[in-house]
Design a protein around this nucleic acid. Structure first.
Lengths: 142, 142
DNA sequence: ATGGTTATTGCAAATATTCGCAATTGTATG
DNA sequence: CATACAATTGCGAATATTTGCAATAACCAT
């Protein structure tokens, strides 16, 4: 479960500079118990210091995603949601009719992960993925 | 394989009005052999008539996605890609390190589809999904 | 401690997408 | 055919995200 110190160590090891801005942003993310939008992270950071720019938030999130330390997920709300591994693994099922979001158990992805690695050498990030479709209610109607 | 007439019939049956704008937009999508971004669809439509607004393109795409007639996919390029069922089913595997996009066979999703339906009553749209992770090259390095 | 290098940042602008609203128009009804 | 209703549209503005650039600063070597 990555905490702030763990995250900064990994990033330093990979050649990134640990700036004050990044420590604050990583602190905001690490202290959250749910995934957040960029705007929510920005608001949390602004509560601490108003000098950090929203562009820096986006750049830091992009860095975390590229390093596999966070996931960027589209839940159909018009903004992306970000989660680290401390937020646990699960699938977001989003109904394209009513917008309901159902959290599904991660185990359904085990076979998929195995076959993508075996067939393509591809190691998917499946800790937080979102799948669109029809919920039980709307699946019955269609 | 939905063509223009097929698409308009489905939409009319579901209570949508078939406007001239929609026919042109659907025509642009139906005559494409690959998924396109909203900007690409807009450019194709502009080649035919310059009166259709980009907001109308987005509204039409949202309608198609909500009705399950198109999929909205994030390939990490900074814009969403849209595909209909005529574009065939496959998985887009996007490397978060180098951005490479690998098309994987759809069969890996069969079990997932079955278990989501059985366990949650959720019918996922899996014709075009994108999964981020590490390609064979970068998976070896990590 | 100092200087150099280059990664990083704030800011403004640009891009992709969505929203509010008044005007337009497709469809249904008489 | 005419009318009414409400869905749809164009337009401008707003929002979410990304980009370019000059200034700043983290890190390393001396």
């Amino acid at each position: 479960m990555p905490n702030l110190e763990h995250l900064t160590k990994i990033l330093r090891d990979r050649g990134y500079r640990i700036t004050a801005q990044r420590e604050i942003i990583l602190g905001a993310i690490a202290s959250s118990d749910d995934h957040m939008s960029a705007e929510e992270i920005y608001a949390k950071v602004q509560a601490r210091t108003s000098t950090i720019d929203i562009a820096t938030i986006y750049r830091t999130l992009e860095m975390l995603v590229e390093e596999g330390l966070a996931c960027k997920t589209n839940l159909g709300t018009g903004e992306f949601m970000y989660a680290t591994f401390q937020h646990g693994s699960h699938i977001h099922l989003i109904c394209r009719k009513c917008g309901a979001v159902i959290d599904a158990d991660h185990s359904a992805l085990a076979k998929l992960e195995d076959s993508l690695l075996a067939d393509y050498g591809f190691r998917p990030d499946l800790q937080h993925i979102s799948l669109f479709g029809l919920c039980a209610k709307h699946a019955q109607k269609g």
